[in-house]
Amino acid sequence: MTERITLADDPDLAHLIDLLDMLRGPEVTSLWGEGDHSIGEKFASRLRPILNGQGRAQDVDYLAVYVLKYLGKDNTHIPEEQITKWLRGVNGLPAAGHAWVEDATRTAWTLVTRYSLPRWRLTDRDGTPGEHWLATP
C-alpha cells in the first residue's frame, strides 16, 4: 500500500488522533520525554505526515504500534496513572484514564491489523484469510 491515507479516509485513524488530542502535547516532557529519541518525537515523526495529508500505511501502522507500546494497557513506558494525569478536562478521574487507555488500545489494534495483517500472513500461502485452517494434516 503506497497511497496516501488521510483522516477523512479512515475514521479509526481520525478517532485515534482525537484520542491523542485529549492528552497534553509534546511540550509536556514529563509525559513524553525530551530530545530526538523521546516518545513524543516517535509519535511526532508519524503524526506529522498524517496530519499534513502525506501519511502512508506505514505511518499509520507505526503510530498505532506506538500507542500499543507506549500508551497501551500495562505498558512499561507511560503508565495509566500518567495518562490520567495528563488527560485534558477530566481532572485526574481514574475511570476516564482507564477508558482512554482501553479505547486507544482497541482503536490502535484495529489499525495495526488493518495495515499490518497482509505482512503477517504466512509467506508460502496466497494470503486467503483462513486458508491454512482448511488444509488437512
Rank of each mutant, 00 (worst) to 15 (best):
L68Y: 00
F43S: 05
Y66W: 08
Y115T: 05
R125V: 13
H77F: 14
N75C: 03
G55S: 06
L122E: 15
M1H: 11
W120T: 12
W109Y: 12
R48N: 10
R46T: 03
D59L: 05
L122I: 14
G97R: 01
V65R: 11
P11T: 10
P49N: 07
S45A: 13
T110K: 14
R121W: 13
R56S: 02
G89H: 07
A57T: 05
A95R: 07
W109I: 07
D61C: 10
E80K: 01
H98A: 02
G33F: 04
T136N: 09
G33V: 05
A57L: 06
D59C: 06
S38R: 05
G72Q: 04
T84Y: 03
T84V: 09
I78A: 04
H77D: 09
W109E: 13
T76E: 11
Y70C: 03
E102W: 01
Y115S: 04
W32L: 06
D18W: 03
I17K: 01
I78K: 01
G127L: 15
D126L: 15
L47W: 01
G25L: 06
L93Q: 13
T107C: 11
T6L: 09
W32T: 02
T105I: 02
D59E: 06
L47F: 03
N75R: 00
L19Q: 06
D18R: 07
E34F: 08
P118N: 13
I78D: 00
G53C: 08
G97S: 09
T84I: 04
T113Q: 14
L16A: 08
R24S: 09
T128A: 14
L93F: 08
G130P: 06
A14M: 10
V28L: 09
Y66G: 01
S116C: 14
G89Y: 06
T128M: 14
L16N: 07
G53L: 09
H98N: 03
A135C: 10
T2H: 12
T2V: 12
D18T: 12
I39H: 10
W109H: 09
L51Q: 08
T107S: 04
L122V: 14
E27R: 11
T113S: 13
V67G: 00
L87M: 10
I17T: 07
K85C: 03
L13C: 08
D59W: 04
A57R: 07
T2M: 12
H132F: 10
P26A: 12
L16H: 02
S45W: 00
E131V: 15
